[in-house]
Amino acid sequence: MIEIEHLTKRYGAVTAVSDLSLQIGSGQIYGFLGPNGAGKSTTMNIMTGCLSATQGHVRIGGYDIFEEPRQAKKLIGYLPEQPPLYLNESPLEYLRFVGQAKGLKGSELTGQIDAVMEQTGIQEMKNRRISALSKGYRQRVGIAQALLGDPQVVILDEPTVGLDPLQIIEIRDLIRELGRSRTVIFSSHILSEVQTVCDQIIMIAHGHLVAFDTPDNLEQKLLAPSEIALTAQADPARVEALLAGVPGVAVAEIRQEEQGRTAARVLTGGRDIFQASRDIFLAFAAEQTVLLELTPKRASLEDVFLELTESDAPDQPQREEEAV
């Protein structure tokens, strides 16, 4: 559906997006994740034709956004970071304008306006002035605007920022619903949100693509060099001796706890974490030592995020010097 090839965007000496290549399929929800200033908004602005690229191509459904903007833009609905609303109009007037600008007419226009207002739940507010609406409703009007013209791709830039928890849940539900019939790309820097809503995660940092996978696969990837936490009913020396008999694991930390219990953290190195857990269990069972806890610690998406985005950081100070 969307092809991004070697996309680069420079603002003077600062490189916001650097050689980004992506293939985005249809009918899924894509989460666009990255720390602030990673180039999320810049990439989205380029994808929607709001910004030019220094280098590279973006094709939407086969149409180049720079060369055939008209056809390409018809396939996209875009909600920028700050909803582009005319505050002294009502949602109905606003949507009518956007619909007309997208080439809708007559009964098709009124039909679609009704449909998107229904979908985003702004029917009751349709005749109020947008300036009188709450942030949550404004966001919905912004999303409604993006849905007009029935685009195949909906791009939402941080749609949940600044909303209260209830509104966040409502917007997420809306995104899920949209994802059933179209491609949805939305950016966020909240991991849990992306994890719960998305089928695929695109992670970028400092303008580079650092990961593009399903949430589960991303976690799996970082599972390998993980650790196991265990607590046993034995003194530290005994626990250490038992662990020494298990191949491929190394004790990272061991400490005595009250009532004769010992807690330990074990690194599994390159071994499969569940295989190592099994070996530890059997070693303790063979010696009739009671294991009270045995937890293979899975890397959370947060760890993945931190690791992937920070591993890329070294060239950052240099860039800041250039900018100065």
Partner: peptide
């Protein structure tokens, strides 16, 4: 009011 972003993203 940043509505220029809307104008840029519309097929006009």
């Amino acid at each position: 009011q940043k509505t220029d972003q809307l104008l840029y993203s519309l097929p006009i």
